[in-house]
Design a protein around this nucleic acid. Structure first.
Length: 871
RNA sequence: GGACGUUUAGCUCAGUUGGUAGAGCAUUCGCUUGACGUGCGAAGGGUCAGCGGUUCAAGUCCGUUAACGUCCACCA
């Protein structure tokens, strides 16, 4: 901030310069100092394919607030940044880019393709990092990581081996979710279910012995090609005689058994279910119980395969139509009903997911879930808000094995080798030269890669050096706080928790601070398809990063969604400007003056008041931050700076600043002290403008980032002065209000006659009344002229003679109304005080407060009555 | 089917361990007030979704109903 200050704060002039100053000076760099208490946040790594959106802006603003706050408090603070390789997203992007050049994956081959992805990553993967900097994120970029860098990859291989050795990782044929578009498996978490209009086809399967047929219903008739049984409930008397018999599968002619299984719901449909073990998770289980063959009828692209006979090669939906009409022609279709049906689709590409049997790698979840549950049950990790722990428990208690292999190339290649001779599997940390079972060298590595979340699950410790015992791991693990949206609890938080419990034996973080999502002004989710997304960078360019940050931090309670509207950012920008001008005011008066150290020996009433208010603010903001109530903290800072500091203290300070001399110097001391403290309290929320102002004020140290966060100071706490000031403020407000009601021109100054027992207070306040309430002179204990407007406060009657402006009847009516109001409130208070239940049971301070209120009201009523009598 | 969230001023939302309801924006009136019109002063506007309960006292705690929303499960 130069001495030539612009009337308006221009963030564009400051932000990039300050960020470079901070980063270049190494202020973001964690010192790994064992003598200090660590505070650690590991960033939720954004995808290298991503661009900064409002969700990131919110998430990273919250993290930066916490980190900057703790850093100022003197913690050894580390905010570790990094990016995620985002397996499927990235692969899809690169495939699309290749397509524009007329190339495809298969033509290039695995190695060439991966080279292209790495190239793409080098070019585009840094974009999101640069965008995070625009927001002011104080990440330790010297420790930036990537989920596929050497360290993270080492952790992945280590974990894969450990799990395999422990029997928690197995390769087997199970039902998985298959995306026919991306041609890969998906985990359960990646499938989204939405309701669609569908049909329920009732089919007729003839009994082999020719004695009749069975009627059953299906929503996916094409899967009948893979039917290997028909099932009924074991206790269903209607069908008991059929169990053990055989039916002939229509169109196919395959002989399939009728089995009894409890999975069948007697009351649903006809009570008979066709069993397709290869294409339905429940049917798969039935198939296992009854040793049924598994016939997969589909290819990896969603077309039918050779098992589908004449339908081979047709798309699954074409096949459905053909099957239905064939069934109808041949008399196997009984009827069709409309029904609502939930269909799963891939959350990335929206393609309808096909349940399918496939040979894949799975993580056995049962043994891993319980320790993760315990971490939260035992309070090692806390959710904020607490209610999300319920969601967490529910998910872990019902979790199924995690399919971790993916049929794409971009990612961590599965460290398993298959022997072409003996068929054995060799899982290894390095590249094995021979099969560990038969010793022969005819081995080949698995072509698949791991689910992108496999490496993200290790992020809180792999980024700190694990599995090596690095100084960083020793100092910063477990991390302190994880900040993330509720939409990612299942994908990520759960997996980090069980991974950390298993490999590090500890919780990955002490607190999971959950926030909601940022919606548009109409409350809709921001999305590409709706085109309602708002680019945070455009908002930063327009209003400044500080304005965007406090907009996102304010008026939003933990775990709840918020609506974004530009009006809010503009209001925040106005606040920044207000603060800027307060600083400009102080600096203008400070000029080249050097202030003495410490506080003036004698503090004026208003000094004591603002210092006490500052103390309260300090205590409350710190308290709010500790409880993750960031929105409340911002609100209090906003109110203090705008209302108390600017609208009251600075206005009053003008009196002594203009008086000059010692009064001026003393006032400047308090002003600089207060502003410096306010700006430090605000720094975590609005880092740029606060640095700019702090630098311009008298200060110690290089940067506000490392300046001490204010603490409560008992020596500067004056509750009596605070109360006295409150009485004067009440008088000022009352006078202003009366003048406005009476349409007194603001320029018109009037004498003020005061009748009060609080003589000292009002004597001290004379100048306040003159400065703020349009008073010319104060007259004590003298009968005011008859044509005076009266203002009755709790402890004084103030008369403003306004000559012809006063209408006595109106005055009488107004005072009468005030009297009535006061009596009404007093009646309520007295009723309470007269109630023994209240006086005996309510806490002392509450009762005292009520007595004080009653006394004040009685006094006011007395004064009002006197005034009325004189009119 | 299960779980959770929301319901407070015209709009968007805060409201900490129960103690007489707040902000921003919008509205109305007034203002060259020597930091700021991105500003200053003043004003209007709320039976805190409904019902019941606990309590001396409920926006706040418990129960219940309704509307809206989210997540989980997925009966073929």
């Amino acid at each position: 901030m130069s001495k030539e200050l612009a009337k308006q704060y221009n963030p564009a002039k400051s932000e990039d310069r300050l960020y470079q100053f901070w980063e270049g000076s190494g202020f973001f760099t964690a010192k790994c100092d064992e003598s200090k208490t660590p505070y650690t946040i590991v960033i939720p790594p954004p995808n290298i394919t991503g661009q900064l959106h409002m969700g990131h802006a919110l998430d990273n603003t919250l993290q930066d607030i916490l980190v900057r706050w703790r850093r100022m408090q003197g913690y050894d603070t580390l905010w570790l940044p990094g990016t995620d390789h985002a397996a499927i997203s990235t692969e899809v992007k690169v495939v699309e880019a290749l397509a524009k050049e007329g190339l495809n994956k298969a033509d290039l081959g695995r190695d060439k393709f991966l080279e292209r992805v790495w190239d793409w990553k080098r070019i585009h993967g840094r974009r999101i990092v640069e965008q995070l900097k625009k927001l002011g994120s104080s990440c330790d970029w010297s420790r930036e990581r990537f989920t596929m860098d050497a360290g993270c990859s080492k952790a992945v291989v280590e974990v894969f081996n450990k799990l395999y050795e422990k029997g928690l990782l197995y390769r087997g044929e199970r039902i998985i979710n298959w995306c026919p578009h991306c041609k890969t498996t998906l985990s359960d978490a990646e499938v989204e279910y939405t309701e669609h209009d569908g049909h329920f086809w009732y089919l007729r399967y003839p009994l082999k012995d020719g004695t009749g047929w069975l009627e059953l219903a299906t929503t996916r008739p094409e899967t009948m090609l893979g039917d290997t049984a028909v099932a009924v409930h074991p206790e269903d008397e209607r069908y008991a005689h059929l169990v053990g018999k055989t039916v002939l599968l229509p169109l196919v002619g395959r002989e399939i058994p009728i089995v009894a299984d409890e999975y069948v719901e007697r009351g649903f449909g006809t009570g008979i279910v066709k069993i397709t073990p290869a294409h339905d998770p429940n049917d798969f289980e039935v198939g296992r119980r009854h040793n049924l063959p598994i016939i997969n009828v589909m290819n990896d692209d969603g077309t039918m395969n050779g098992e589908a006979g004449e339908y081979a090669g047709t798309d699954r939906y074409d096949c459905r139509k053909k099957i239905v009409s064939a069934l109808e022609e041949q008399g196997f279709l009984v009827k069709v009903e409309d029904m609502k049906h939930n269909i799963g689709s891939h959350d990335r590409c929206r393609a309808v997911v096909e349940p399918m049997v496939s040979l894949q790698w799975f993580v056995k979840m049962g043994p891993l879930a319980q320790p993760a549950i315990n971490l939260v049950k035992n309070g090692k990790t806390k959710f904020v808000p607490e209610r999300f722990s319920k969601v967490y428990y529910h998910w872990l208690e019902n979790i199924r094995d995690w399919c971790v292999s993916r049929q794409i190339w971009w990612g961590h290649r599965i460290p398993a080798w298959y022997c072409n001779d003996c068929g054995g599997i060799t899982v290894s940390r390095g590249t094995p030269s021979a099969c560990q079972h038969c010793g022969r060298t005819n081995i080949k590595q698995d072509e698949d890669t791991l689910d992108t979340w496999f490496s993200s699950a290790l992020w809180p410790f792999s980024t700190l050096g694990w599995p090596d015992n690095t100084p960083e791991f020793a100092q910063y693990y477990p991390t302190s706080t994880l900040v993330t949206g509720y939409d990612i609890i299942f994908f990520w938080v759960v997996r980090m928790m069980f991974s950390a419990a298993e490999y590090t034996g500890r919780e990955p973080f002490n607190t999971v601070f959950i926030h909601g999502i940022v919606r548009d002004a109409q409350g809709r989710k921001m999305s590409k398809s709706l085109g309602n997304g708002i680019d945070p960078l455009e908002e930063i360019a327009k209003y400044g990063a500080d304005a965007l940050r406090i907009t996102l931090a304010t008026g939003n309670s933990p775990g709840n969604d918020m609506r974004y509207s530009e009006e809010k950012v503009s209001a925040s920008r106005n606040f920044a400007n207000k603060l800027w001008n307060a600083a400009r005011f102080v600096l203008m008066h400070l000029g080249n003056e050097t202030l003495p150290d410490g506080m003036p020996e004698e503090l004026a009433l208003e000094d004591k008041w603002i210092l006490t208010r500052l103390n309260t603010l300090t205590r409350e903001v710190t308290d709010n931050l500790e409880k993750f109530e960031l929105g409340l903290a911002v609100q209090k800072l906003y109110d203090f700076i705008w209302d108390e500091l600017c609208d009251w203290y600075i206005e009053l300070a003008k009196i002594r600043l203009n008086a000059g001399g010692k009064a001026k110097t003393d006032t400047l001391c308090v002003l600089c002290f207060t502003l410096s403290a306010a700006v430090r309290l605000l720094h975590p929320f609005m880092p740029f403008i606060t640095e700019e102002i702090w630098q311009a004020l008298p200060h110690d140290g290089e940067t506000i980032m490392l300046a001490p966060f204010p603490v409560f100071n008992a020596e500067l706490d004056f509750s009596a002065a605070e109360a006295e000031m409150a009485r004067l403020m009440e008088a000022v407000r009352a006078l202003r209000s009366r003048r406005a009601e009476m349409n007194v021109p603001p320029g018109k100054r009037a004498k003020l006659y005061i009748q009060t027992e609080q003589y000292e207070t009002f004597t001290r306040g004379v100048e306040f009344l003159q400065k703020l309430a349009g008073v010319s002179d104060v007259v004590w204990d003298e009968a005011p002229p008859a044509n005076a407007v009266q203002v009755v406060t709790a402890d004084a009657v103030l008369f403003i003679p306004l000559d012809d402006l006063v209408d006595l009847d109106a005055e009488r009516a107004r005072l009468g109304k005030e009297l009535e109001q006061a009596q009404k409130i007093l009646a309520g208070v007295n009723a309470k005080l007269g109630n023994v239940e209240f006086t005996s049971r309510a806490p002392m301070h509450v009762v005292r407060h009520q007595r004080d209120t009653a006394a004040t009201l009685e006094q006011k009523i007395l004064l009002l009555n006197e005034s009325l009598a004189k009119l």
